[in-house]
Design a protein around this nucleic acid. Structure first.
Lengths: 109, 109
DNA sequence: CCCCTTGCCATAGTTAGACTACGCAAGTTC
DNA sequence: GAACTTGCGTAGTCTAACTATGGCAAGGGG
């Protein structure tokens, strides 16, 4: 019913940026990082996160390899590719462009 | 394929705000207004606009009545209801909250 | 007069993607 | 050994923006 929180399309941007900042992370870390930095406004559900990561793998924006966490659990570590970095810059400018335009409309007198 | 321009969910906000600013408008005017004020960044397709207006009617955010334009054509004029004004303020703060959070993430060091 | 463009409304069908709800496994804590 | 946490994953649902199409009326150009 209630459309909540993460606007469709921006999850890619959030993940790309998070990976760009932190290098290599596994899914759980990515979700926690986004949630923490957004001050709990954005909650990345697992049912959104993992399918998004799969799609990003297919698109070639990230690569993944299995490893072991500090807490001794197996986890899949994701890393940006060159295409991912390029996509990040595309999504960044797209985001600014669109949000700027929306802001103009909702602030117009 | 390519996700373009208007992020799902924000069309309501754009329409609500446009009606709040201009009082009474028909669909075509609403679309043109959004496009103009956004400096052509946001293009409201008819196939998005009219279904959205229908949903807003059902939700009780707007009322509609048939009339005639200055150019002598029949058109459906939409007007905000009290519920629509309330919804506008909800969507405004929601938008700011979420966009602020996303901005924190994509600007984090 | 007929056609063409523009204004204006509408719907059917497709698609992307975020969600809920669930399942699985391994480690830690009590 | 029960419960909790970490961690990955999928099946199915739903919203809403899109493409494509159609229709109709008014006005202008040939």
């Amino acid at each position: 019913m209630q459309r909540d929180e993460i606007p469709p399309g921006t999850l890619y941007l959030l993940i790309l940026k998070t990976l760009a900042r932190s290098g290599e992370m596994h899914g759980y870390e990515i979700a926690n990082s986004i949630q923490r930095i957004s001050e709990d406004v954005l909650q990345v559900e697992e049912g959104s996160l993992y399918p998004a990561l799969q799609r990003m793998l297919i698109k070639g924006w990230v690569t993944a390899k299995w490893g072991t966490t500090a807490g001794n659990r197996r986890a899949r570590y994701y890393q940006l590719t060159a295409a991912g970095r390029k996509q990040l810059s595309i999504e960044m400018s797209q985001f600014e462009r669109v949000i700027g335009a929306i802001t103009r409309v909702i602030e117009a007198v």
